[in-house]
Computed example of a mutant assay.
Amino acid sequence: MADNEFQDSEFRDRVAFITGGGRGFGKAFGAALSARGARVVLADIDGEAATSAAAELSANGADVTGLACDVADESGVAAAMDAVATRHGGLDILVNNAGLHAAYNRPFHELGLSTVQRVFDVNVMGTVMCTMAAHPLMTGRPGAAIVNISSSAAYGNHTVYGVSKLAVRGLTMSFAREYAADGIRVNAIAPGLILTDTVRAELPEADLKRVLGQQLLSRAGSETDIVDALLYLASSKSAFITGETLRVTGGFALSA
C-alpha cells in the first residue's frame, strides 16, 4: 500500500482484536488491517504462533501485538480484553475468527459427546464470551464493528461443525439487535471452499472437484476473497448493514 493510501485509510489508529490470529484467516486479517494503519492484537490459543505472527507483521513498523488466549476460557478472555484496554484504551473492531474446523464436519454420533462439547465451547461460546467481554470497550466508539466467521457449512449442513456455525449466524443476529443502541454493528462472513495452505494439504482431490462442481463460479476461493469481505464489513462502506451473514462461496450456497 502506498504511503498516501496508508495515511488516508479509515482504519488508521483503529484498534482491532482478532481471535485465531496466529495463522490462516486470522493472520491475513491482521496483515490487511495493520497495513492500513490499524493497531492490531492477534489472540490465539497458541501464544507462540500469535507472538510470531505479530513480530512478522510489525517488521514494517505496524502496531501489532500477539497474546495467548483460549476463547473457551472466560477468565482468559477477560484478561485479554483487560490487556487491550490497558494498551489501547478501547476497541473498534472485533473479529471472532477462532474455531475448530474441517475435522469436526461429521455427524454427532461419530464424534461423541466430549468432542461435541469442545466444538461448541470454542465455536459458539467462544464467540459469545469474546463479544460480551469486548462490548464495554466498544460501546460508543464511532464505527464499532464486530465480524464473526461462520461458514457455508451453516447452510443445509447437519454436522457438528455445520450446526455450530449455524449458531454463529444466530448469534450475529441476536447481538446485532442487542448492541445496535450502543452503536456497534454485528455481521458475519460465511466462507465457502477457500484454498488455504491447510486445505490444499488436507482436502482430497475428489472432495475438491465435488465442491467446485456445486459452485456457480468454477474457481476455488482465496484468502483475499475473505479478507476483502472483512474489510468491507469493518468499514464505513457497510455502515447501514448489521445482523447479516455475507456468503462468500462462489455460488455454492445456492446449491444447498
Rank of each mutant, 00 (worst) to 15 (best):
M1C: 10
D3C: 04
D3Q: 07
F6K: 14
D8N: 14
D8H: 11
D13L: 01
G21F: 11
F29R: 04
D44K: 11
D46C: 02
A53R: 07
A54P: 05
L67R: 07
A72F: 09
E74P: 05
S75T: 13
G76K: 09
G76A: 08
A79G: 15
A85C: 10
T86W: 00
H88Q: 08
H88N: 07
H101C: 06
R106A: 13
H109N: 11
H109G: 03
L111Y: 03
F120A: 01
F120S: 01
D121K: 05
V122N: 02
V122L: 02
V124F: 08
T127W: 01
V128R: 00
T131S: 15
M132H: 12
T139L: 12
S152W: 01
G156W: 00
V160R: 00
V160K: 00
A167P: 07
V168N: 01
E178C: 04
A181Y: 01
D182W: 13
N187P: 07
A190L: 09
L193I: 06
T198V: 07
A201K: 06
E205R: 13
E205C: 05
A206R: 13
L212H: 10
G213L: 09
D225L: 13
V227T: 09
S236P: 00
L246R: 10
F252I: 12
S255E: 14
